Simulated assay, not measured.
Amino acid sequence: MERKRIAVAGASGLIGGALVRSLTADGHEVVRLVRRAARGGHEVCWDPGGRYVDTAGLDGCDAVVNLAGAGVGDRRWTAARRKEIHDSRVLGTAALAEAVAALDRPPRVFVNGSAIGFYGETGDRIVDEDAPAGRGFLAELCVEWEAAAAPAREAGVRTVFARTGLVVARGGGAWQRLFPLFGAGLGGRMGDGRQYWSYIALHDEVAALRHLLAREDLSGPFNLTAPQPLTNREITAAMGRVLNRPTFFAVPQAVLRTALGELAGEVLGSQRVVPRRLLESGFAFAFPGIEDTIRAA
């Protein structure tokens, strides 16, 4: 990809930070969206809650990537936390999409974060990008999240939705909590372990985002997950093999529901999601298997 000027919202997060490092290492100019006064030309002030963006700072950008949003698994889902999770995604996306649409020189592409939570509970049924939206808080959130990008799409900007699965990394997400437990020999399956987890290595997540940025023929939803989702029981066994630790412990459903509240439903839920459109576009995974993914992390 030739040198570009790319604006990134959520640049301090796990995925956003890794994307910024990758783009910068290859010589691209990265403009970070920040929620304070901008310090120089490589920052743009915005207020996602107030739907404000300093559009002058986006002028001349070739691409805008929105990965901003409050952490889904950080805390219990109180009413206030639900609102924060919702508004940080929906209002933030609307603010950026409206800003992009208002530019005299709009970017060529708007890549907006989303999640495989879009599909809801799928059991052992394999789903790809053609599957309809599911039910529940996260599914309904993802529908609103993607719909909020409409102003950019209607303005003729190529719009892509990156429906990301469980990112395997030591620095954030679910695996940030799992690695210490398994390393101490305290890891084990959650519930009965038969629920499918659709994972992706952080390296492949970033590579996929860059693939979507570069390919001008790609738009719409793309699942960012490894080609073969596995059950929690299979992933637990792989963690034990890679870390050379026992995996005897199991967390009963009742304990998870007491500790996590409604969030336990997402941990115990099953999503067998495959990246059909990403594979059809020619994307090659560096870490398609779970053991290599864990080692990469």
Rank of each mutant, 00 (worst) to 15 (best):
53 V>Y: 02
218 L>R: 10
107 P>K: 09
212 L>Y: 08
6 I>G: 02
21 R>K: 15
255 V>S: 10
233 R>F: 09
169 A>K: 06
38 A>D: 09
227 P>M: 09
99 A>I: 13
28 H>C: 10
187 G>S: 08
128 D>I: 12
268 L>F: 03
287 F>D: 13
291 E>K: 07
35 R>Q: 11
135 R>C: 07
77 W>C: 07
122 T>P: 01
94 A>S: 14
25 A>K: 14
110 F>T: 09
12 S>R: 12
11 A>N: 13
57 G>T: 12
287 F>T: 10
69 G>D: 03
158 R>D: 05
242 V>I: 11
11 A>R: 07
130 D>S: 15
112 N>T: 13
48 P>C: 05
248 F>G: 15
287 F>I: 07
160 V>W: 04
124 D>P: 09
180 P>G: 08
259 A>Y: 07
129 E>P: 12
186 L>I: 12
268 L>R: 04
150 A>V: 10
264 A>K: 06
121 E>Y: 01
64 V>C: 05
103 L>P: 11
187 G>D: 12
256 L>I: 06
208 A>P: 08
296 A>L: 10
211 H>K: 03
154 E>I: 12
268 L>P: 02
283 F>M: 07
277 R>W: 01
272 R>V: 04
250 A>L: 05
117 G>C: 00
243 L>H: 08
248 F>R: 15
43 E>W: 00
247 T>S: 11
278 L>D: 10
256 L>P: 13
216 E>P: 06
78 T>L: 02
11 A>K: 00
222 F>T: 09
123 G>D: 03
239 M>I: 07
126 I>N: 00
111 V>L: 15
276 R>K: 14
185 G>E: 01
63 A>P: 08
63 A>L: 05
199 Y>W: 15
284 A>W: 01
111 V>R: 10
6 I>S: 03
122 T>N: 00
86 H>Y: 15
149 A>Q: 02
4 K>S: 13
163 R>C: 08
67 L>F: 01
38 A>P: 14
36 R>L: 03
261 G>R: 05
29 E>K: 14
147 A>R: 15
240 G>R: 06
281 S>L: 09
111 V>C: 12
22 S>A: 14
